[in-house]
Amino acid sequence: MSSPDVTDERSGTRTHVPGEAGLWILICADLFVFTILFAGFLVDRHDNPAMFSRSGQELTLAIGVANTLVLLTSSLLVARFVQRHRAGDPAVGRLALGAIGCGLLFLVLKVFEWTHLASNDFGPVTDTFFSWYFVLTGLHLVHLLFGLTGLFVARRVALRRERKEHDGLVVEGIATYWHMVDLLWLVIFPLVYLTAV
């Protein structure tokens, strides 16, 4: 499959589709699922605002904020990684490693938060809020794990001594997916953590 890049250097207009066109079937399907989940969360919160507010206070806002900053940093690193890879910079491995480090830090913080909640007897069946909390953050974490695997692949591709024809597409596709993981968190964070405020 050829790159859909049709950037016009002279006029500076870009009609570039990042990654492969087919990848966007997947991104749209994923965003569709999460949109329904977010709507369902809002409906349940509307029906029971007191419970959502009360249970929401049991979450540690600091961990949510930290995870948001960690993911935003990773997205910045991934964007720089794609740029440097396009420019043919051989030292791009460090940027990918930084993004992977951020992803792992997110994972550690999330597992810490879950175990902390579990030790205080909060679980997916505690109430509707916590069902939503664990489903949303759990599904998001599954996506993050796929993304992390992707970043490892992207790093390997970028560090290969000889460039292959589709390397740019692979790196861009994985970066696009990672940005989606970040984007989803940027909705989950205010929805879940700021619901009590």
């Binding site: 492969e20 066109a21 699922v33 664990f134 599904l139």
Partner: peptide
């Protein structure tokens, strides 16, 4: 190749099904 991406999308859309337990 879009058939490959379609299959990943199928998997993604099936994934939330397991949460029906809760």
């Amino acid at each position: 190749r879009w058939f490959g991406y379609l299959n990943i999308s199928v998997a993604v859309l099936l994934l939330p099904g397991v949460s029906m337990l809760f």
